[in-house]
Design a protein around this nucleic acid. Structure first.
Lengths: 339, 339
DNA sequence: GTTAACAACGTAACCGGTTACACGGGCGAA
DNA sequence: TTCGCCCGTGTAACCGGTTACGTTGTTAAC
């Protein structure tokens, strides 16, 4: 592989001049620049980004640390990040903590000297631990995580409000006994959604201790919830699952038992995964623009890297939108397919 | 940020000793090593990977260059790659060519000095162009691309065989007039699938010029194809879409016109996207383990990086499996839901 | 007692770029 | 003519690590 020295020798100039010519800096005559460029072509020289980033003290790369890479959720986040990063000529270095807390520290440490900034999504991590791992000198934006006590910039989804709105909508459609299928115990999103549900039930429905079934965000747990619902004597005319995956499982379970949705019971989910609108009947849900989560975080990071101060923009909260589809259609509408 | 020299000074040793102690090389007394480690802790020193990779001449990173990041297909590939990469302590640097050929060159060039090897998925690129862009010194494995004349290792899906098998299955189920919805003209996958269809129709069905409708792998183009099918006088008792997305659009279009699937017409797709089994009726398709595409390629790259020669293993072809579901169920089975 | 061998550690070159500073020449102004 | 300035270019230090090689001190072998 040709180095800058090779190019300089070939062009009969010094490395400094060669570097300046290649990078288009001033103070280089047209003929010398041409000579250098000719040498570049001839040796097909490509600058060594690693070496360059060492002196420039910037890598044009941001590290993205995610808890996992499974499913459309993470892929959408990455796409959103890439969209913005690409515009600014930034590269993405992927770090996967594979669920383990110990690996989180390793993943973050491995980023030193490779990236200019970090985008981190710490799923169930305690804030104190997180601040231990993080390098204060490395600009960092948190993904889908309300920093709380830490003064790190973050972008998150307003899960509480979303769940509140969905519960309200179910009640408005005439449901009296709404059952919630919760997500994983320690998951922040899941907990916020549950809180929203409980509060809405209390304030709007006047119900103190609404029914809550356990779940873990997986389709299987939705199926299980259907079983519990059917065999139990729980009165239910609507079910609000903490995410779409569980709603999908739930609907499958209900269908198997001959229950009609929304005729016998309305169903709602959260996330608006692509599958939601293809179900039959289509699934009502809270739409979260997952890609915006990534792109917003990336834009914040870019601003920090440019030296701007975020101020109040250092905490961005995305509000999900209610998407009413077939599974919560009123009786009269139940027959008309809604695409 | 503390550097190695800071650590060495703090511990009262030379940089060489500090480096050896940190990296666990021999020839360091226990007490000196302890002193160095204490200094590391005190200054919380983290080695600068960029600088390290400069001398070591390896980065422990592989570059992944994809045409896009949209949808489950790419996310599954990345996940497959990460699975294997992670085991070997490798990092992933994402490069997105965003569909443009010009950016492909830039994306590849930008990898110089950042990665030890490359995983490239060149969708509609001509082999000659590709070899121009690629650096012969950088180990490269092609994703979902039959290198053909180039002697680059690759892993691909046997689209021809898959399409052949699916067409055969449709004919075996009694279909006489099978219509194909093709993918994008210049896409290799699409062309191979079409060839498989045409050949199977000729050899098994005895049909010379089977009906082929245009498409571009998008759901909309499937919907359009349904329109063409319905208004035309084309006889059709089965439709084989070149991918699942189009099949989904097609089914929606048929349902809107009151056509029954599989009663009036059978439908089959290709890819087995997660959505396929959730449709009603569920979609018959060719299952491709997309994540294996990524993990296999990564394993090949790792072997090359270890200095092994791949030999005949330098070309891996994954064979998709037929998944028969509801949309191709025989008349008798048409009533029973197949999960 | 001398020497060879080896273990522990230090010095400095090097990876491949960038860039501060030095230097020489051409030109305008006094 | 001489001085000063600026422009184009070269020299060398530097980024933060690794490592070849040299040095010192200890021990085993003669």
């Amino acid at each position: 592989m040709a180095t800058l020295r090779d190019v300089a020798r070939e062009a009969g100039v010094s490395v400094a001049t060669a570097s300046r010519a290649i990078n288009g800096l001033g103070n280089v005559t047209a003929p010398t620049k041409a000579a250098v460029m000719a040498a570049v072509k001839k040796l097909n020289f490509v600058p060594h980004s690693g070496a360059r980033s060492l002196t420039r003290r910037k890598t044009d790369t941001v590290g993205v640390i995610l808890p996992d890479l499974f499913g459309e959720f993470f892929s959408e986040i990455i796409r959103g990040i890439d969209l913005v990063a690409h515009e600014s000529g930034m590269h993405l270095l992927l770090g996967n903590m594979h669920g383990s807390t110990h690996e989180t520290a390793a993943a973050i440490a491995a980023m030193r000297g490779r990236v200019d900034g970090l985008l981190v999504m710490p799923p169930d991590l305690k804030p104190e631990l997180l601040s231990d791992y993080l390098d204060p000198a490395l600009p960092t934006v948190l993904l889908n995580y309300d920093a709380g006590s830490l003064d790190l910039p973050f972008v998150a989804v307003d899960n509480y409000r979303g769940a509140y709105a969905m519960t309200e909508a179910l009640l408005a459609r005439g449901a009296r006994h709404v059952v919630h299928i919760a997500g994983p115990k320690h998951n922040r999103d899941a907990r916020d959604r549950q809180r929203g549900f409980v509060d809405a039930m209390a304030k709007i429905g006047g119900v103190r201790n609404p029914a809550i079934l356990p779940g873990d965000f997986s389709e299987e747990s939705g199926l299980k919830a259907a079983g519990l619902l059917l065999q139990g004597q729980l009165p239910a005319d609507a079910v609000f699952a903490a995410n779409d995956q569980m709603a999908v499982g739930l609907i499958a379970g209900l269908a198997e038992a001959g229950k009609s949705v929304p005729g016998d019971v309305m169903v709602a989910g959260f996330d608006d995964i692509p599958l939601a609108r293809h179900l039959n009947p289509s699934l009502s849900t809270m739409q979260v623009h997952i890609d915006r989560l990534g792109s917003t975080a990336m834009m914040m990071l870019l601003r920090i890297l440019r030296g701007e101060t975020l101020g109040s923009a250092s905490a961005t909260i995305l509000t999900p939108a209610l998407i009413a589809r077939g599974t919560t259609a009123m009786a009269a509408q139940a027959m008309t397919a809604q695409p």
